[in-house]
Design a protein around this nucleic acid. Structure first.
Lengths: 342, 342
DNA sequence: TTGTAAGCGTTATCAG
DNA sequence: CTGATAACGCTTACAA
């Protein structure tokens, strides 16, 4: 059942059927009606594949994200979809499982599927074959949340540095004097930016009593890193909420009470953080909005407009809940800087 | 840059290039090498669109799920993808936002995108236009987790009834005498099946002191329904983990301690439940496995095999954590059955 | 306003 | 083993 059957049933040529579908106003009312009846009767739907082949426009955009199971990434995706679906686009979303090779492979697959645009949240700190693959492929691309710094593509992200700096400043202001920063994957752009924010705050306030530990962006990593702490500081800053929650768990096991003995903060304000006990003080990222913006930027690219702003940075908010307690801790005299890599 | 450019560069016909790609063994070693060099040199990748148009096989399967942001649905999707990607399939996943009309619309869109198969997790209890749309479309379909009972399609799900029955039995055995069941969307197949499990347990043990309240599958719903409870029972059974967690929050606010005053159980064993305070006792569903099975069933359909088992039901486990306390409560003499609809 | 026909990039059939 | 050519279903000049 194709355009030919419709034409036959309606007693017109296939071009007329095509016109009824694509520019009805250019067809006489009589034929238009006849064709519509035929379409209805047969339950005809145009074959998008053929259409794409002919027009060169697939109306499909692809997403590449590190983990298809992580709600934060999917909220971004939803933001972008909500913008782009009004423009008539369909979506293919692929997860790399944080694997660079998979990322390259998916990129190739999407390209041969002729997607018109791709929104990428990077899986690693570098991907050496990335540039080569997209080179003169004609796809429009945007980085979302994370980017490869050596690749010049529009980027929509969040001010990670300012976010962590802000919440660390808040800790200093509320009387904390010693700190530990629990980082996520140290090669990712977001981990680097966040750590930078922490360091800026330390410098700015002349704090020397801090530790930096590297692990992953997971609950388990937060838990393990905390157990490796050389001493328990006044405040623990998690690379994200999961890490912070893991830290709280470890702290509890070690007999420390949060926030009475130690304050803990995170980054993300993920769905569950407000329900955790005690509710987590953290940095809220405009995740959905970030995706929405990325969708918008891609749309501009897609419609041939010039992008004036190659980089769009969204700001964050501190959300104060129950894991930070105002204190006036004595300096415990720990000034050594430590790095532990998990 | 297409198959023609490759042919030209290699000095062969386009059929030879096509053969090198699709059945290399049928081409002489010499030409094969020449063509491969040319492909390499140009960075050529076959146009899937054209290929699909010609062969009629797109190698794409679609997913329709109620909420693209819910990790549980995405874990199912991942299960199915993990199975199907080894067979060379790509994926389009669409979320309906629990909206039936959107569901129908997406179905149509997927069909005109010529996906070969669709895995559906239903958004409602009924969708009147569903059957009409897929009628003689030729797509292979499978229901996953939830189904429309009036539509005869293969179904892969979980034994909701047995799961809730099991955990309610457990509550009875541990000395609980009065109960409240907090249901999710009452028209969905899973909500119905779960409630049935609760009722079976009540009947079986001759318990008459129970309340059933209807709301949604959300934290907020659990919270609100709990506040509407006519009396506080020994145990609250949540329609899922979110509902249970909401119930705990409300209970705490109302001055009851879980599990000392009231026991609470959920259903799902979602990611966060093990970290909640106190850690939630719940029913573990084999979510990933369910998706994997659905992928397998769809694959059988796709490869033209006969499906012997139209219905595949996976079993659940109870996971006992900290929200249930063994007790020997006196019957508080509440025998009235109440229904509250949110 | 309508129809004819070319062509999008492949694969498949058929000769050679 | 290789090449010419038709066809997949559609859109779009161009002609009528």
């Amino acid at each position: 059942m194709n355009i030919r059957s419709v034409a036959q049933l309606a007693g017109v040529s296939i071009s007329t059927v095509s016109r009824v579908i694509n520019s009805p106003e250019s067809v006489s009312e009589e034929l238009r009606e006849r064709v519509r009846k035929a379409i209805e009767q047969l339950g005809y739907r145009p074959n998008q594949i053929a259409r794409s082949l002919r027009t060169g426009s697939t109306k499909v955009v692809g997403f590449i994200i590190p983990d298809i199971t992580n709600p934060a990434f999917l909220l971004m995706v939803k933001g972008a979809e909500d913008y782009l679906k009004r423009k008539g686009y369909m979506f293919i979303v692929c997860g790399t499982d944080h694997n660079i090779e998979e990322e390259t492979k998916l990129l190739k697959t999407l390209l041969s599927q002729s997607v018109e645009g791709i929104i990428v949240t990077c899986s690693g700190g570098r991907n050496s074959s990335f540039a080569k693959v997209i080179q003169n492929s004609g796809v429009k691309m945007v980085f979302m949340d994370r980017r490869y710094e050596d690749i010049d593509l529009p980027y929509v992200g969040v001010d990670n540095t300012a976010g962590v700096e802000k919440i660390t400043d808040f800790l200093v202001k509320t009387g904390h004097r010693s700190f530990a920063y629990l980082s996520g994957e140290r090669n990712t752009s977001s981990a680097k930016e966040r750590l930078r924010g922490f360091m800026k705050s330390m410098k700015k306030h002349g704090v020397e009593d801090y530790q930096v530990l590297y692990g992953r962006f997971t609950f388990e990593s937060g838990y393990e890193l905390t157990k490796k702490l050389k001493k328990i500081p006044d405040a623990v800053v998690g690379g994200n909420d999961l890490v912070a929650l893991g830290a709280i768990e470890a702290l509890n096991e070690m007999g420390y009470h949060v926030p009475d003995d130690v304050s803990v903060v995170g980054f993300d304000d993920m769905f569950y953080s407000k329900y955790s006990k005690p509710a987590l003080t953290t940095v809220r990222q405009p995740i959905y909005e970030m995706g929405y913006m990325a969708g918008k930027v891609l749309w501009q690219l897609l419609s041939g407009k010039n992008i004036k702003k190659r980089v769009t940075i969204l700001q964050t908010d501190i959300v104060v809940r129950e894991t930070v307690k105002e204190r006036n801790a004595p300096n415990r005299g720990f000034t050594e800087k430590v790095e532990v890599v998990l």
